[in-house]
Structure formats: C-alpha cells, structure tokens
Design a protein around this nucleic acid. Structure first.
Lengths: 214, 214
DNA sequence: CCGCCTCTGGACTGAGTGTCCGAGTCGGAC
DNA sequence: GTCCGACTCGGACACTCAGTCCAGAGGCGG
C-alpha cells in the first residue's frame, strides 16, 4: 500500500484498487500505471518486486488508438518464478474522457496444490458487518435507551438539552430503530418532543453541515 | 451491461467495473450504487434480478463520517437461493473528495467452496451453517428463511406451491420482518412473486376465513 | 376447448414519511 | 422591560409507501 501519494489519480482510483485487492486476498496484485510516463503509479498486494516509479513495461496495449477497447483480457501472464497469472487491464479516463491511467489486476492462478488453500481462504472470516440492525421489541429498546440517558444525565426528560436528545437519537439510529415502521412518532413521544422536532433533530444527525434549519 | 447511461459517474467508473466483472468471470457481479438516492446506478454480470434504478438497500455506510474507511469487507452475504457471496464495497469519491458512489463486488463462493472441498478431498458435509447465533440484518434474514425452505422442499423457487410460499411468509412474519419498512417488496422479489401476490398471501395468513380474495 | 384456479401488472386510495413555515416560548443581553 | 436569537410546536403540504382491487394472462385437469 502506497504511503503518501499526492497524485490525484491515485486518490481517485485507490478505493477501487483497494477493494479489489482486498476481495482477492493475497493472491492478486493491483497496479495503477501512468500511461504518459509508462511508470507504476501505485501498487497493492505486490507479487513482484515492483514499486511506484518503476517502469510499467506495458507496451502491448496501445491506448493511443481511440477505437481500442477500454478493457483488455483476461489474458495470461507468466512470472519469472513460474507462477501463472490471469490479468485484466482497464483504461481509466479523466473527466474529459482522455486516458489518464491504466489499471491492471493480476490474479495468481497458482499450482493446483495451492488451489485448495486459495479457495478455502475465500471462505474465511467474514469480517464484522457494518450494522447489527433488527430488533423485535424495538419499543422496549427505545425505552431502554431513553431511560439509560436519563439516568446517565441525572436529568428528567423535560430538562434534556438539545445535545442530550441528539445523543439519544444517534444511539437509536445506530441500533437501527428507525428502519422500523412508525418508529419516529413513537420515539418522539418517548422523548417528549414533537414529531417535527424529532425529524429536525434526525435531519441534523444526517447533515451536520446544516445545523440550523428551523 | 447498461445501455445508454448519461450519468457521468458510470462513465468514470465503468472501465474498472467491467474489468473486475470480466476477471472474475461469471461468478461475480459488480454493482455501482448511488449513495444519494440509495439506488443502483449500473450493474455488470447481475446474479440477482436487480437493475439500474432499483433500491440499493445498503444500510447507510455512513459516508458522513470522514474517518470511516473507504473500503468495507470482505463480508458474507446470502442470496435467496442459498448461494453464499463474498462481498467488498468501496466508497468512490469525486474530484472534490466527496463520496459520489459506492462500488460493490459480489463473488459467488459456491463454485470456489466446491472446488476447495473437492481438492481437499475431505467429506465435510459442507459445514452445517455455523451461526444461528448472530443477529444479522433483516435482508439476510429473508434470504436465510427463503433459502432454508428451498433446501427443505428440495424445489427451486419457481416450483414452489402456494402452501410453500404461505409457510415462508408465516415464518418471516413470525420473525417480525414485516415490521420493517419496505420489507414486503423485498420479500416478494426474494420469493419471485409479485407484490400483489405477496399481499394476497399475507392477507390470507391473517384471515384464513376468507381463503379466496383474488 | 372449457372452466377453475392462481399469479400478475396496473390502478387506486389511504396511511405513513419527511419538509417547511408561522407562531409561541424561553433565556440572556441590553 | 424589551429585543433578539435559539429552539420547539402544531399544522400544512408533498411525496412515498402500504394495501386493496381488478381485469387479463397463463397453467392444468376434464
């Protein structure tokens, strides 16, 4: 993973590159090439010793030809150590539509005895989910959360500040409560605020840029 | 492959999407989501019936938080027909650095798992689903329940009888799924029936006295 | 071919969601 | 006390969504 690369193209494309590199685990390398200088812009999961700044040596795809396709491959590549790769390349264009970089994904097809390990590796971990979501007695969870804040603040509901209420709503939202039908009015009642205010606060949660609307 | 999409984001990202879709062959689908409207912008190699314009249902990867990572996953997803997917998501940003879209790559692990099992040559009745323990979001619960019935009936979804579907809906209802907003259409799609039919069957669940309404 | 049954897409209505605004409240500054 | 800014409130509104209903399109056994 490149450290500090001020090149805007790297900034633009790196999320995709990282995503692909991550999906394919340790068996694929993702390379961003600078077409103009024919050098490596950035590289993820390098399988070879290449580093940013090295020559790209991708003379074959003539991205000069405007009629040429944007996506090449998959084609086979060979590594000095004998490993076989499946590769695809894509011509990436800037807003003006001119080629600005070339993306190459090199997937190690690997010897068969490695295949099992490779494949089972895909079956791995299943990292934590972005969201837990879904609760059956969401009504109780509301009371639970609200009650917790009342106790934590040592204030009765009527004396809650705007920030207190925001905090409660933030927590309820994180708990996925608002994915449930008719939840907002219920929450409003529980918080002893009007439906309007509830929506106003929720809007502020989502767009902190515009704190004041009302 | 989308036909005429004037959206500039699709133009920008489609080469990468096509490259990835092509690399991973028929077993991966690539989806571009519009974060603002929570809808599908474009899709390559669709494994589900989704099309541009459909709701994305990606539960708020909070693109508000600047400290949030740009790349999520790989995490596990379930399809109604029981296939298991490895997925990664990447937040794509415009030149100003603001999130403009989300890229999801969904890789069908089935063939890979199969190959792995074959290669390792060990029986292992395919690991009887490690987790009824975790609380997953309702979308997956739907797929989970539907997939379970498919396996139990030994019939593909298209050959389900009215009673089969009623049973699925009964179970989903008992699980409280229909308390979630917009859940019915999602269930209908998962069950491969129309929205109308879904409601008709649900009505029958609630009023068995009036079996025929339609 | 003919009922019988079920599913389907479309139309339609009411319910629920989210936004906006004018008006009222509160507390602090003057 | 009066003014003012920050906040909340209820009501109005537009829009999406939830359910219902129906006419028509099959599937299927007689």
């Amino acid at each position: 993973m490149p450290a500090e690369t001020p090149d805007p193209r790297v900034r633009t494309w790196s999320p995709v590159c990282r995503a692909v590199a991550q999906l394919l685990g340790p068996y694929a390398e993702v390379v961003l090439h600078d077409t103009a200088t024919d050098r490596v812009l950035a590289i993820w999961n390098p399988m070879t010793a290449r580093a940013p700044g090295d020559r790209s040596l991708l003379g074959e795809l003539d991205e000069l030809d405007p009629s040429a396709p944007d996506v090449y491959g998959p084609y086979e590549k060979l590594l000095p150590d004998g490993r076989r790769l499946s590769s695809v390349s894509a011509v990436l264009r800037d807003d003006a539509g001119r080629p600005s970089a070339v993306l190459c994904v090199n997937l190690d097809r690997g010897p068969l005895d490695q295949a099992a390990a490779l494949l089972t590796n895909f079956a791995a971990p299943t990292a934590p989910r972005p969201e837990p979501l879904f609760e059956r007695d969401w009504t109780e969870r509301i009371n639970d959360v609200v009650g917790g804040h009342v106790r934590a603040q040592g204030r009765p509901l009527e004396r809650f500040t705007r920030e207190d209420r925001l905090a409660v709503l933030r927590e309820l939202d994180a708990a996925g409560v608002f994915a449930v039908r008719r939840a907002v009015p219920v929450v409003a009642v529980a918080l002893r605020i009007s439906r309007s205010t509830a929506y106003a606060l929720l809007a502020e949660l989502k767009h902190p840029a515009a704190p004041r609307k009302n």
